Computed example of a mutant assay.
Amino acid sequence: MVNVDDGVPAQRWEGGTGWPGVRDKRILVTGGSRGLGEQIVRLLLAEGAHTGTCARTAPGIEALDVSLTDRERTRLFAEALDVTEPGRLEGFVTGAARRFGGLDGVVACVGGSRGGGFEHADAGDWAATWEVNVGHTTRLVRAALPHLRAAGGGSVVIISSVSGWKPGPHAQYGTAKSAQIHLAASLARELGPDGIRVNAVSPGSMLIPGRRWARMRTETPEAYAAFTGAELPGGAPVEPQEVARAVVFLLSDWSSGISGANLPVDRAQNAPTPYGY
């Protein structure tokens, strides 16, 4: 009997299997003052990364800053800006790269939707939803590209959604999130020769204080129980901290073999809304 592995030495781990993390990496996160973006920023700083972030309002940035430790604050670069405003996002990327001496990764976390159902959402609603999701992502990656290339490569993480691959209302949002998943796969092929990995992360329904599911759990507990019972095998939505850990993994060197993927972090969620497909 011939063993197909005969003659091939077993691989050994040198120095153990300690988590290399993102220490000293230089990473930008859009929309980092609340929700998922905030948790990504906090985890990056806690893990020793130099972290840049932006938010639409100065109070959000200020609240984040004062909540950090002195050590974390020295590694934070933050600005208040609207990512859809021409030139502002590009200026933020340039400023952060100058502050940190380069970039090793970016996370496109800003997202959202405008307008109602299909018959009520006009062309402006579709355009605005596309711009805040897909438009801002492409501009972020394009602005960061020279800095990632100069660093010898890096990691791009695009925050999509369960709505990007499991249909539900509203169509303009799901369409934009689906495009982000395709964008990750396409850019992974195009930028791979430069050592740049691109992946999408698709969170399911998240329990964020003050947001939809947290309000639903408090205000209409019966509807919340019906939704989680029918659509979430785990019985509860994911926490933003759980999604943040997946994002930071994709930014780390331990995910070096992963590119062009869409990683769902949704506890095997079925439909993205209480209303089914």
Rank of each mutant, 00 (worst) to 15 (best):
V2K: 09
N3D: 07
G7L: 08
G7C: 02
W13L: 14
E14G: 04
G16S: 07
T17R: 11
W19C: 07
P20I: 10
G21P: 06
V22I: 06
V22D: 09
V22F: 07
R23A: 14
R26C: 04
I27L: 13
G31Y: 05
L36W: 05
G37S: 07
V41I: 04
L44A: 03
A46P: 08
E47P: 07
R56M: 09
T57D: 15
E62W: 08
V66G: 08
D70T: 06
D70H: 12
A78D: 05
A80K: 10
A80W: 07
A80L: 08
L81E: 11
L89A: 10
V93L: 07
T94P: 02
G95N: 13
G95R: 15
R99A: 15
F100Q: 13
F100Y: 14
G101F: 06
G101I: 06
G101M: 07
G102N: 15
G105W: 01
G105S: 10
V107C: 12
A108T: 09
A108F: 03
G111E: 00
G115L: 07
G117S: 14
E119G: 11
A121R: 13
D122S: 10
G124V: 02
G124P: 06
D125G: 01
T129F: 01
W130Y: 15
E131K: 12
E131P: 03
E131F: 02
H136R: 15
T138R: 15
R139S: 10
L140M: 15
V141F: 05
V141G: 10
A143L: 11
P146R: 14
L148H: 12
L148C: 11
R149P: 01
S155D: 10
I158A: 07
S160K: 04
G164V: 03
W165E: 00
G168Q: 04
H170P: 08
A171G: 00
G174F: 04
G174L: 06
G174R: 03
K177A: 00
K177C: 05
A179Y: 00
Q180F: 01
L183F: 12
L183H: 06
A184H: 06
A184S: 12
S186M: 05
A188K: 12
R189W: 06
P193H: 11
I196H: 13
R197I: 10
R197M: 05
R197Q: 13
V198Q: 09
V201R: 01
V201G: 05
I208N: 04
G210N: 11
R212Y: 14
M216A: 09
P221S: 03
P221W: 02
E222H: 11
E222D: 13
A225Y: 08
A226E: 14
F227T: 02
G229Q: 08
E239R: 11
P240K: 04
Q241C: 00
E242R: 05
V243T: 03
V243P: 01
V247M: 01
L250R: 08
L251R: 05
L251E: 12
G257N: 11
G260Y: 07
N262R: 04
L263V: 15
L263Q: 07
D266F: 03
A268P: 03
P274A: 08
